[in-house]
Design a protein around this nucleic acid. Structure first.
Lengths: 349, 349
DNA sequence: TTGATTTATGATAACGTTATCAGAAATCGT
DNA sequence: ACGATTTCTGATAACGTTATCATAAATCAA
């Protein structure tokens, strides 16, 4: 059982074959392929006929040799070990970008290789991509610094510190955090714990961690609340469970917990339940994040949520638009998460 | 605020520039780039020096013009509307493939555009990809038929009916279903309901639906059980909830429910709870599927699970290996899901 | 020392396409 | 009927690379 011979045996049909079959010159075929003016209808028909009969397909690389763009974008998530990605990258990011790219006539690469400055530049220089969409942008991101300096096109999902002349779309984590507290305080809660991004995110200067933290500090001040928080791995349930145990040990009188991830929230609910707290009667839980699973856990999860699909779709659209018209203004979009109230939050007793 | 000029203004450094700088001919530089024999060490050093100083990067498209492969794979999921994808495509599939591709020196495209036979062939003919990894393969899949006939390299995640000479890796859904029943029957359950793939999956001849069904029928026969099932959308929680209500209406004495998706299982548990069944005391729930959330819902979910990451990693490896050595034997791998017992199943009373 | 081999380099021709130019044929205005 | 324009087509030269061949220099075997 061996695979049959592979395609390399096929002699490719070129524009020259088409020209010969249609009895015209090569440039004429090229003109027809590129919808140039000044081609006789009769000739066009004859050539198109030949193209169809021969099953001719333009050789994209040959076109690029003449300076044509590659019509390819790439989504880049910087990562040490790809196995760890799953819990952080959400599939809608990839799908949204792929959908938008495809709609605009672009291919989408998904890059998870570990890039060095050199390899990053090579991707552009060698024409592999026309533009990049950067995920997981840190406040001082080497990719951003390099691409900005070298003047290669890219769009961020997320944002760095210096945003001058850069296009991005990001979630407003700061506002999200404040709204989370507003919601709980409005329900009468005063003892609110927080389970948030892992410490290494904060030390690495990653946007969500930084902006959440800023929001957290503003919220505490705004409502004069005490600070009870743990930084946990987003991977999940176990981490949320353990951190909640730990938090309740320190502060058993908590009446609400905010988690910046659905899986962490799920773990938190399990821990609360196990320690005899009823959710939401004794303790409310609110998540900041996105996922169908919000409806699946018991009680269903009140959350500040957004559509990752939309975000990456928009980011990709910004990129393709800027590639089409180079002098488009930069776009800077902050998406406000919306509060969806389900069963896991309730008035404080 | 306009983006600065884009890269098209940059004159690219070519092999000719390097040759001039190093005082050698163009072919000599090419030889060094491609690690050919017969180059003097002194020359090599001088050229490498020039390459580094000029920041030269080979123009990949020009290479491909000479017949070099594109070193690009694509993952293809056939889809009508990309927005509907999220619940079906799992991120580990994408990440596993991207990781394997990157490790083997390939790029990975994620294709969600709706392909026609023509556009599919064009992707190969125009050298966009060297090989494809097909997801969501149906028993009689036009992509498979076409690519097999035209002899283009591809690997399936999933499998069609006629597997001669084709490489695939797939989950053994049939065995999974039987093991699910075995587990429950061993616990003393006789009244078992099934929530499975949507009807349109079955009518479309999609592998998971077909093989699950086969397993279901064998399991019923093996244990002489009655058939109680609903076909539901995998998108989720609501669907699982409604279907469970419906199923219990018909057969309130059910003591176990099998779901072919975690979100559906979550919905099912909610429905059971709402109707006053305790899980697992009154009714066990078992899921066939994969997801960290299994630990997050209450009770945590007993499941027949697998690693999507591993599966797509393997599939990609098979593809790259076959591209490297054309006469490699085809690989046909069936992955057996493994039973992970958590809290949602228990002996029948 | 001689001829054969090995080692190192360069000239040249492709790969498939498009841009530029030049020229031929058709159409137009007077 | 004439030149001026418009419409159409084809030669030719690139784009950046690698393969092939030829040749020159260095090394080797006797």
């Amino acid at each position: 059982m061996y695979p049959k011979k592979f395609s390399n045996s096929k002699p490719n049909i070129t524009i020259a074959d088409v020209a010969k079959a249609a009895g015209v010159s090569i440039p004429t075929v090229s003109r027809i392929l590129n919808n140039k003016v000044y081609v006789a209808d009769e000739t066009r028909d004859r050539v198109n006929q030949a193209i169809k009969e021969l099953g001719y397909v333009p050789h994209i690389q040959a076109r690029q040799l003449r300076g044509a763009p590659s019509q390819t974008l790439a989504l880049h998530y910087p990562v040490e070990s790809p196995e760890m990605l799953s819990s952080v990258v959400e599939i809608p990011y990839v799908i949204g970008a792929a959908a938008a790219a495809s709609k605009q006539g672009y291919f989408l690469n998904f890059l998870v290789s570990q890039l060095t400055p050199d390899t990053l530049l090579n991707i552009y220089r060698s024409n592999q991509v026309d533009g990049l969409i950067l995920l997981q942008v840190s406040l001082d991101d080497w990719r951003v610094n390099l691409l900005r300096e070298q003047d290669y096109p890219f769009v961020m999902i997320g944002r760095c510190a210096n945003l001058e002349d850069l296009s991005f779309i990001d979630l407003d984590f700061e506002t999200a955090m404040i709204e989370a507290f507003d919601h709980l305080v409005a329900l009468g809660h005063r003892e609110i714990g927080l389970l948030t991004y892992p410490e290494r995110w904060r030390t690495a200067g990653l946007g969500p961690a930084a902006h959440s933290l800023a929001g957290y500090e503003r919220a505490l001040q705004k409502h004069s609340l005490g600070s009870y928080y743990r930084e946990v791995e987003l991977s999940g349930v176990e981490a949320g469970f353990a951190a909640t145990q730990d938090l309740l040990e320190e502060r058993p009188q908590l009446t609400a917990i905010i988690a910046t991830n659905h899986l962490v929230a799920a773990g938190s609910i399990k821990a609360l339940t196990q320690r005899g707290y009823r959710v939401p009667e004794d303790c409310s839980v609110l998540a900041i994040g996105f996922g169908e699973i919000a409806n699946g856990i018991t009680p269903s999860l009140t959350a500040l949520e957004w559509s990752s699909y939309e975000v990456s779709y928009q980011a990709t659209l910004i990129m393709t638009n800027q590639l089409k018209e180079k002098r488009l203004p930069v776009q800077q979009i902050l998406v406000a998460p919306r509060l969806v109230i389900r069963e896991s939050t309730k008035e404080a007793i």
